[in-house]
């Protein structure tokens, strides 16, 4: 059988619509990984995902301690939902997660975005969601390339070997 030559991916558009720590990092790791591979990379934040590019919130993201069945206590025992609902628990768990990430050389959100932009990646905010949350360019991180519409997003995804990934 003739061997088909596999062509590398040219462009990725990652969409992040959630504002909790793990979903934002999933998008950031995927975007940074694409940049590192030399793939043209665009990252689009919408709805609660906008927290990740909002100056006042980006480096203080939380992980949900309620309604997260995969959450475990240190040591591996299940994490009771009622405990997660207590004041301060979510903040404490989130800060612990951030420390563990830092130990693996995963940078804070703002620094991660800087790395992506340094490699040529582009960051966008969703116009509809920004309007809904009453956010303007001034509220957003300085290197956000623009607040764009869904139509703009699809235009950017034109071409061959392009993937749109929703994290």
């Amino acid at each position: 059988m003739e061997k088909v030559k596999e062509l590398p991916l040219k462009k990725v558009m990652l969409i992040c619509s959630k504002g909790n720590l793990e979903d934002v990092y999933a998008a950031l790791v995927m975007a940074n990984g694409a940049v590192m591979e030399g793939i043209e990379t665009k990252l689009f934040f919408t709805f609660f995902g906008l927290d990740a590019i909002t100056r006042s919130k980006m480096d203080k993201l939380h992980t949900a301690t309620v309604g997260n069945p995969a959450m475990r206590m240190p040591g591996g025992l299940p994490f009771p939902t009622l405990l997660g609902a207590l004041p301060g628990v979510e903040a404490g768990v989130s800060s612990m997660m951030r420390k563990q990430m830092d130990a693996l050389d995963m940078p804070p959100v703002s620094e991660f975005l800087e790395l992506i932009v340094a490699g040529g990646g582009e960051i966008y905010a969703c116009k509809l969601a920004a309007d809904m949350f009453k956010l303007t360019k001034e509220d957003l991180w300085e290197d956000v390339s623009g607040i764009i519409t869904v139509g703009d997003l699809y235009e950017m995804c034109a071409g061959e070997r392009v993937q749109i990934i929703f994290t």
Binding site: M36, G38, L115, G119
Partner: peptide, 12 residues
């Protein structure tokens, strides 16, 4: 990081 990407273009 930016200079590094420039020095080794593509997959630095």
């Amino acid at each position: 990081a930016k200079q590094f990407y420039k020095m080794f273009p593509g997959a630095p």
